[in-house]
Simulated scan of single mutants.
Amino acid sequence: MGITNIFAFIGGLGGTEVMLILLVILLLFGAKRIPELAKGMGRGIREFKDATKDVKNEFESAAKEDHVKNNVK
């Protein structure tokens, strides 16, 4: 599932193009920096997901409060 989502996100790139991009990234950043970059990206994605969950929960609680107020009247 994850691999297909990644390739769907990349679009029409083939296997050769993806391998070439990965090679360039490896050459630019080096083998030691890539795990640090991936960890930072993971933290950023996790924080973004947490923030969207918080916003969603606030909207849902506000909707429930409005529903309760409208049913009381």
Score class of each variant (00 low, 15 high):
53 K>N: 13
39 K>C: 07
12 G>D: 13
53 K>M: 12
34 I>L: 08
63 A>Y: 04
72 V>N: 13
47 E>F: 13
24 V>H: 06
30 G>L: 01
52 T>R: 15
21 I>L: 07
12 G>Y: 05
46 R>E: 15
34 I>F: 02
32 K>T: 15
56 K>S: 10
50 D>C: 06
11 G>F: 02
35 P>E: 02
21 I>C: 05
67 H>T: 12
11 G>R: 00
48 F>M: 11
9 F>S: 08
28 L>F: 11
39 K>D: 08
9 F>A: 08
8 A>I: 02
71 N>C: 11
39 K>G: 09
2 G>L: 11
47 E>K: 12
68 V>T: 08
53 K>F: 11
7 F>R: 04
47 E>L: 11
34 I>Q: 03
26 L>K: 09
40 G>T: 04
33 R>L: 10
30 G>S: 04
23 L>S: 15
37 L>A: 04
5 N>K: 01
30 G>I: 01
2 G>Y: 07
41 M>K: 11
51 A>L: 08
36 E>H: 09
49 K>F: 14
39 K>T: 06
4 T>Q: 08
49 K>T: 08
20 L>T: 13
33 R>Y: 01
17 E>R: 00
50 D>N: 13
18 V>H: 00
32 K>C: 13
52 T>V: 09
21 I>P: 05
39 K>F: 04
51 A>E: 10
4 T>N: 09
71 N>I: 10
31 A>K: 07
6 I>G: 03
70 N>E: 15
5 N>Y: 03
51 A>S: 12
34 I>M: 04
62 A>Q: 13
24 V>P: 02
6 I>N: 04
11 G>Q: 01
48 F>H: 11
50 D>S: 12
67 H>I: 07
28 L>A: 15
4 T>R: 03
7 F>T: 03
43 R>N: 10
42 G>I: 01
24 V>W: 05
19 M>P: 01
39 K>M: 10
